[in-house]
Design a protein around this nucleic acid. Structure first.
Lengths: 244, 244
DNA sequence: TCCCTGTGCTTACCGGGTAACCTCGTCCAT
DNA sequence: ATGGACGAGGTTACCCGGTAAGCACAGGGA
């Protein structure tokens, strides 16, 4: 739903056609999540079907020619009343976090831990390397804006970097992109911390199993410590109450 | 790919039929991510198509009746050699974190920050409430194992809790479920921290904008028409001066 | 002239995910 | 015994997110 809702939000600002939607979306997220043009159109058409969006009537016949420079021969879309309602409702409703999305890493480790013969430690170490790598990339991007886009999403897709920026107006877009990056950084840090945590738990469990004889891996003292060295990520000073 | 890979990993332990796959998957993730049976079968059939899995030949004719209690009339699946290779390769390869998955919340805030007339502070506050709520639920679950499942994933789906547990063997499943919960907790904490961070950044930005005169932060529209109307989003009264 | 590039758009296709449905076999009450 | 309820096991149709390939058209050089 994120794309769908995002498009509605963009259309709430002004009518646009498909390419513009894509451009705006990517500009404001710093190109972090490239948006396939096909998806834009199918999504918009679904929105039309659902009555949230309607095509702006083309000036085709008759009154086209007056004042407005409605020269574009392209189909533009705008919100209906229902669409506007959906937009405000989206802003008013938090993103649901209660039936969390499937996380491949969590699933993988859950299965690894319960599968005989899997080298869990190895899995964790390799994952940590990978996650640290991406974390480093993110922080580097943060320091060197690189004139954004590119970078992430390794897939080819011709680079466009160019001086497309409307000179002044989008300090706001820079802010947004910077916040998105922070989000990725915070997420990666949490993942690292979790990996450390898992490793510690496993070490403790296997140690106990060893010393206490075979007695079935006692089920988890409910709480524990979060050891990690707080990994110093520039600009990611943690604000609120620690992890625990 | 998480489900697909997970099924391969499960089948690496022993041949199973669809229902068993679902049970095992849910047991080891503590029911955090309920798996629709239809998805199991379509996924398994794709695996068969791709040569990673094959049905165990039914004991139909002839030699069925010897020693093995191969009494099940149901189709069971097992890995092929290619499947086993895929499994070990999955364990050996970290989950990619470089083209991060779309995160609805990050997208939403990026758009909120760049949209005129959106009450960003309100969005953040509501989200924080929601995320804190789920965080609380997670930690409560952690303290009170509740005999797991249920709880998350509000959708109906008859509860089954029962004493299905194979008495001893799955202290490991408890461990796995506990780790999954930790993962959710770490993620939620990171989200909270990020929300705080965003709020602080916005406060700082708006403060600077205020003291330094109007300077930057001009109108938004990089392209064409900017109907001065500023779109009257009904009910989206900007409570705070955070942005703009 | 021809070709390249960029804009705007369409289409076919795939995989994840859900819901509704079907078939058996077993158990139990009438 | 019969027939309903129920659970295990499985199939199907459908939707949505997402990708790739292609079409049409308009400048702008070499």
């Amino acid at each position: 739903m994120s794309v769908r809702n995002g498009l509605v939000a963009l259309l709430a600002e002004q009518p646009m056609h498909g390419y513009q939607l894509r451009q705006e979306f990517e500009r404001r997220t710093g190109g972090t999540w490239p948006l396939n043009i096909g998806q834009v159109y199918t999504t918009v058409h679904r929105l039309v079907r659902d009555g949230l969006v309607e095509p702006v009537p083309q000036g085709g016949t008759g009154s086209t020619d007056d004042a407005s420079e409605d020269d574009a021969p392209f189909e533009r879309f705008r919100l209906t009343d229902a669409g506007r309602a959906a937009a405000t409702s989206w802003w008013a409703t938090p993103v649901e976090r209660g039936a969390p999305a499937r996380d491949e890493l969590a699933i993988k480790l859950a299965l690894a831990v319960t599968s005989p013969g899997v080298d869990v430690r190895g899995v964790i170490q390799r994952q940590r390397t990978e996650t640290l790598r991406s974390l480093r990339d993110f922080t580097r991007l943060k320091v060197t804006p690189d004139h954004r886009r590119a970078a992430l999403a390794g897939g080819g897709q011709a680079g466009d970097v160019g001086p497309v920026d409307t000179p002044v107006a989008d300090a706001r877009a820079d802010l947004a992109w910077s916040l998105v990056l922070d989000s990725l950084i915070f997420g990666a840090e949490a993942e690292i911390r979790w990996l450390d945590h898992v490793e510690a738990r496993l070490a403790r469990a296997s140690h106990e199993a060893a010393t206490l004889g075979s007695a079935a891996v006692p089920a988890v003292p409910p709480t524990d410590a979060a050891p990690p060295g707080r990994l110093g990520v520039p600009g990611a000073a943690s604000a609120s109450g620690a992890d625990r």
